[in-house]
Design a protein around this nucleic acid. Structure first.
Ligand SMILES: [Mn+2]
Ligand SMILES: [Mn+2]
Ligand SMILES: [Zn+2]
Ligand SMILES: [Zn+2]
Lengths: 143, 143
DNA sequence: TGACAATTCAGAGTAGGTCCTATTTACTGG
DNA sequence: CCAGTAAATAGGACCTACTCTGAATTGTCA
């Protein structure tokens, strides 16, 4: 939470109970949640909160670099409190996105002829497939 | 279009004018369009078509392996007629997704300790940043 | 402790779908 | 080439996840 208070101060963002809970919630969930998922969780603590507040707050957090917006597959925008370089496993069955770290991938760089005039800010490896959980379920169905 | 007719036959999908136009449109657009974008384009040729038809058709195309569903950033699901290994540039300003090919990236593989029980079907490098076009616009604003 | 800009809430509006049902159409095999 | 049948489509209701607007509230700093 220190990072939260510091970043807010640096970017002139007021510290409100709503914002504290939104940041806490996104850190607690390991699931790259959508605005709506964060909204439902925070609403249990602050019952008056609206989805609008959560959405706008998450946009501000992204601008401030406190969280990032990561790739999704047909679902709403998903947020990630892990702003360090890391990579993703994406399950095409359940839609889950899981982090993985593998240092050699952090050094991957697109060559100049590809990047061209593109100003690169982040490079990520995304591995799509079927997670262990969903594979188990599929097998059960087959029997 | 040969691939279209062949894949439809192989998967027992009836060949309808709607499906022909949907596939043609997604091939023509280099922009990884959403169902709604395909719908608007096809509607100019088949004015009675509904978004529902386009949505369901695209799901079927994905199941048949005729197109793939690619990562998006808070927008709706996006489709790609290029099912061969390739990689993406993602502009965080305009939301555009552009293809790039770079053979060395095609060989990237997550190590066993990462993949674990995950059944990998596809590995892609996603480079996020700002495209040449958006950079130009930003500079114009600054002046 | 104010003053006041920033933030929040409530509610209406919107985008991009999904679901349901009746009608139409593409394929089959006689 | 035609009829029967299963698949596909159109139209419309419904839904989810935002996004916008305007008024009320609150955090910050002098
Ligand atoms: Mn992550
Ligand atoms: Mn592509
Ligand atoms: Zn899964
Ligand atoms: Zn751009």
């Amino acid at each position: 939470m220190d990072l939260f208070y510091q970043t807010c101060r640096e970017h002139g963002l007021k510290i409100t109970p709503q914002r504290e809970q939104i940041y806490k919630e996104i850190c607690r969930s390991a699931k790259h949640p959508t605005a709506d998922q964060v909204y439902r969780a925070v609403k249990r603590r602050i019952s008056s909160i609206t989805l609008d507040t959560v959405s706008r707050t998450l946009h501000l957090f992204v601008k401030a670099g406190l969280v990032i917006s990561v790739e999704s597959y047909g679902t709403a925008r998903r947020y990630d409190p892990n702003v360090q370089p890391h990579h993703h496993l994406h399950c095409t069955e359940c839609g889950g996105i899981m982090d993985f770290e593998y240092r050699p991938f952090d050094r991957i760089t697109a060559p100049a002829q590809v990047a061209g005039d593109f100003e690169v800010s982040r490079t990520r490896v995304v591995v799509s497939g079927i997670c262990a959980n969903c594979k188990k379920k599929q097998k059960r169905k087959v029997r």
